[in-house]
């Protein structure tokens, strides 16, 4: 019952945060209130997950809706960390709206239950696999948003446009993008490894479509990481590769849910 009471303040918090952050362009105080309401939304969202876990136990990601809700929570958490920097606070509307949309999708679209939970009801590997997969999707989603901002900022500077809308600096966007892609890649590795363990313990190796998509995404991000860290590939080329990687991640997510 407590779970439902947490939803309303969370929805209201993110909704008002997106509105106030938008108006914060003209009135700085509103942005401060926007951030406070975002925190209220995040606390309510966390409380929801906590009570939901107490209600259903591990793994609490039972349906597709649960996984989407968890993704929205990871996105909110990441923005809470990034938003500590002043220039990221100007992106409050974008992130609040994104969190709100994904969260509402999770609430209203419950979807089917995960088959894996019924195949291995007591295996430790299932919650790890699911949690890592959802977190990876959210991390890559934020990486995608960061990458798009990076391209916008790069275009703005290349085209000598006046700097009215203050995005985070290129260097900051670059380092955040690198950190997110690295973390996402590690999580994806955990997802693949736990997936192999699950299949092996089931006694048969079923290489479904989502498995190949996940491996493709893993390889693409490995190339992205390698070229960023060792060859200094930045800007549009790196971004194009990241985009293809994120598409593979999205397809993996959808394919896994179509089972």
């Amino acid at each position: 019952m407590m779970t439902h009471w947490c939803i309303l303040p969370s929805v209201l918090g993110f909704f008002l945060a997106s509105v106030l952050d938008g108006l914060g362009r003209w009135e700085a105080k509103l942005r401060v209130w926007g951030r406070r309401l975002f925190i209220v939304g995040w606390i309510s969202q966390t409380a929801y997950l906590f009570f939901w876990y107490r209600e259903v136990g591990a793994p609490f990601v039972v349906t597709q809706g649960d996984s989407i809700f968890l993704i929205s929570w990871v996105i909110a958490t990441l923005y809470l960390i990034l938003g500590r920097r002043e220039r990221w606070q100007t992106l409050g509307t974008l992130f609040s709206a994104a969190v709100l949309v994904v969260m509402l999708l999770g609430i209203f679209y419950r979807g089917a239950n995960y088959a894996a939970i019924y195949l291995w009801p007591h295996a430790w590997v299932v919650p790890v696999h699911l949690a890592a997969a959802m977190t990876a999707v959210a991390v890559f989603a934020v990486a995608m948003i960061t990458g798009v901002l990076l391209v916008i900022s790069d275009r703005q500077l290349k085209n000598h446009k006046p700097m009215r809308f203050r995005l985070p600096s290129l260097a900051n966007l670059e380092s955040v993008l690198s950190a997110l892609v690295s973390a996402g890649w590690v999580l994806l590795t955990v997802v693949l490894a736990t997936g192999v363990v699950m299949m092996a313990s089931h006694g048969s190796i079923d290489l479904g479509g989502h498995w190949w998509l996940a491996v493709t995404a893993w390889l693409i991000y490995a190339v992205v990481l390698h070229s960023r860290l060792w060859q200094g590939a930045r800007g549009r080329k790196g971004m194009l590769l990241s985009l293809v990687g994120f598409l593979a991640i999205l397809l993996t997510f959808l394919e896994a849910h179509s089972k």
Binding site: S153, L167, S169, L170, A171
Partner: peptide
């Protein structure tokens, strides 16, 4: 200087 800050932050 502002352009430099836009690129490098600081």
């Amino acid at each position: 200087v502002t352009l430099a800050e836009q690129i490098f932050g600081d």
